[in-house]
Design a protein around this nucleic acid. Structure first.
Lengths: 154, 154
DNA sequence: GCAGAACGGTTCAAATTTGAACCACCAGGA
DNA sequence: TCCTGGTGGTTCAAATTTGAACCGTTCTGC
């Protein structure tokens, strides 16, 4: 039981900044999306991921990995979006167990409708308040962090 | 309805990195704290904030602002922590409506117990994977983001 | 003083999230 | 072929989170 290496001032500032920015941005965008498009950020992200996939569909597990949520959480949200008609489920030909989530026409429409406002909010909160150099540095640092965690946590 | 300013490659990388790092770090620390100390990250943060306050206590609203959660959410968590004996409630002398949350001896004990493992996890996930220069840049950028959002969102 | 607005916390119902248990089903070796 | 160990998704109960409604209290301007 060694004496732990506490954070120095510089490290603490980075950590507090990370936690604060994380929560503030999340809350801000959550509200913006809910108010302007009636979607939660999770739901919006689902639509984005599906829309970016080759044929507008992804396997449940694949999608859960990208969203970084639990499998059961995804099942719940897909069911909600299905009720709303924004996505559908399709079974996988090569694996009976498999399920594809697929964005519908209506899903595309809602996404197109929501995107401009969301991008504007992301700009206002994060992008446009930083210099291009800062953005590059941020992308670089957070990319490293993500890669490491994906490697260790799976 | 102007054409929205979409994100360029650099901006998109920063944004995706932010979202990914945010979720991955949150999930990682949530698990670490739950496994090692039986606390949620929110609960841990409550203890940290109280322990750092002058006399180990803060007004509910003040605490909610620092944690960036809703008032009702804080009421719930303080109740949980109170049941567990880690914090107590004290009424405010100068304002009958006011309530102080106060860390208890047991709360201090649990916090001291949990801190080393948590700091180690924070180091492994964020601090030690970056250079000091990156950390400074990160603190700077995210500090800016937080300040702006606090100013606009309140 | 006093009416009315704003504040500080709690309560409530509804939505979401999580992990564990479960149920088929695929894959690989004996 | 037949086990056996994972895999892919769903189901379930329990914990958490949120916003709106609420209630007494404090503050303001008049």
């Amino acid at each position: 039981m060694d004496e732990p290496r506490w954070l120095n001032e510089n490290e603490m500032a980075a950590w507090r900044g990370f936690v604060a920015a994380t929560n503030l941005v999340a809350r801000h965008l959550e509200r913006q999306l809910k108010d302007d498009a009636g979607l939660s950020h999770t739901q919006y992200e689902i639509l984005v991921q599906l829309s970016a996939a080759p044929d507008g569909s992804l396997r449940m597990t694949d999608l859960a990995d990208r969203l970084i949520t639990s499998k059961s959480g995804l099942t719940y949200q897909i069911t909600q979006l299905e009720k709303a008609g924004l996505v559908g489920r399709r079974s996988c030909p090569s694996d009976v167990r498999g399920v594809f989530a697929e964005i519908t026409e209506e899903g595309w429409r809602v996404l197109r409708e929501a995107a401009p406002g969301h991008v504007a909010a992301v700009r206002a909160a994060l992008i446009d308040v930083l210099t291009p150099e800062q953005l590059t540095g941020l992308a670089d640092s957070l990319g490293t962090v993500s890669d490491r965690l994906r490697a260790t946590d799976g």
